[in-house]
Amino acid sequence: MCGRYALTATPKDIFEFLSVISIDDFPKRYNIAPTQPILIVAAGERQAPGSNLPVRQAMLARWGFLPGWVKDPRDFPLLINARAETAAEKASFRAAMRHRRVLVPASGFYEWHRPGKEEGGKDGAGKAQAYWIRPKHGGILAFAGLMETWSSADGSEVDTAAILTTRANDAIAPIHDRMPVVIAPEDFERWLDCKTGEPRDVADLMRPAEPDLFEAIAVSDLVNKVSNMGPDLQAPVTPLVPLPAKRKPVPPKGSGQLSLF
């Protein structure tokens, strides 16, 4: 699950990490929320000088995926995540998995832990504790994403995107049963290659991250409010209850595609 994340790296760092053509200056963003514009990276059409590989292109897209066949976005659910296990088969994501795979640069993401009965909550209905989940050694990472350009009846176009999620690894599972799919730098080219690489060719990349990649820091509920956007969102706090050593798997409700928190 990924309902909020942050991107606080400099344009220079993103340029070097993802090898994009160019990237405009932009502010640090500590609380990126659904429906907001997000930075994505796609394979470009032309080749890099002295290489047979396409130049990568950075662009902005609305975080909230709209399949091309949607007639009115107001009548369509908000799709911010796609389940990696089923995206290649789902009507909403099938075409994008084959033709429009992208990378979503991030500095980390937020997740909420709801204590169960054994932790003093009521069937997971206790007060949720927010966690800022970031790479242990800092830096940038890239989530697996999908994009689609939606065209309205009047001819206007909107680039939209979703983040792929998978089952949580052992480090994240005590907080939540899902986590974003992280693509390693050595796999960027294979993930972005939609001309020769089919979904089955990248299925092995859509796996949980290594358990030692992330650290989880309890933070205040400031992140719950979209209008809060400063670095204080990531200040550590004492968690409401200690995390359990391991949580029981949560069975998905339906497809699970529409979950936010």
Results as ranks from 00 to 15, higher is better:
residue 1 M to S: 08
residue 4 R to V: 04
residue 5 Y to N: 09
residue 13 D to G: 03
residue 14 I to W: 03
residue 17 F to T: 14
residue 18 L to T: 12
residue 20 V to T: 05
residue 20 V to I: 07
residue 25 D to S: 15
residue 26 F to S: 07
residue 29 R to L: 14
residue 31 N to T: 02
residue 34 P to T: 05
residue 36 Q to V: 06
residue 37 P to N: 07
residue 39 L to A: 08
residue 40 I to L: 10
residue 41 V to W: 02
residue 45 E to T: 11
residue 50 G to N: 06
residue 50 G to Q: 06
residue 51 S to N: 04
residue 51 S to L: 02
residue 53 L to R: 06
residue 55 V to C: 08
residue 57 Q to I: 08
residue 58 A to S: 04
residue 58 A to M: 10
residue 65 F to I: 13
residue 68 G to T: 10
residue 70 V to D: 08
residue 73 P to G: 05
residue 73 P to I: 11
residue 73 P to C: 05
residue 74 R to W: 14
residue 77 P to C: 13
residue 77 P to W: 11
residue 79 L to V: 15
residue 80 I to K: 00
residue 83 R to A: 02
residue 84 A to W: 05
residue 86 T to N: 01
residue 87 A to W: 09
residue 91 A to T: 14
residue 95 A to W: 13
residue 97 M to H: 11
residue 99 H to R: 13
residue 100 R to Y: 05
residue 102 V to I: 09
residue 102 V to Y: 07
residue 104 V to Q: 02
residue 112 W to F: 15
residue 113 H to C: 01
residue 122 K to S: 13
residue 123 D to M: 06
residue 123 D to L: 07
residue 125 A to C: 11
residue 126 G to V: 06
residue 127 K to L: 13
residue 132 W to F: 01
residue 137 H to F: 13
residue 137 H to K: 15
residue 137 H to R: 15
residue 138 G to Q: 12
residue 143 F to Q: 10
residue 149 T to K: 00
residue 152 S to V: 07
residue 152 S to K: 12
residue 153 A to V: 14
residue 155 G to T: 15
residue 156 S to V: 02
residue 162 A to R: 09
residue 163 I to R: 00
residue 167 R to P: 04
residue 171 A to P: 11
residue 175 I to R: 01
residue 178 R to D: 04
residue 186 E to M: 02
residue 188 F to H: 15
residue 192 L to M: 00
residue 202 V to D: 12
residue 202 V to C: 13
residue 203 A to I: 07
residue 205 L to D: 09
residue 207 R to W: 06
residue 216 A to Y: 00
residue 216 A to G: 02
residue 220 S to Y: 03
residue 221 D to Q: 12
residue 221 D to F: 03
residue 223 V to I: 08
residue 227 S to E: 12
residue 227 S to Y: 05
residue 229 M to K: 10
residue 234 Q to G: 05
residue 237 V to R: 02
residue 242 P to G: 00
residue 243 L to N: 03
residue 244 P to I: 14
residue 245 A to C: 10
residue 250 V to D: 11
residue 251 P to A: 03
residue 252 P to R: 00
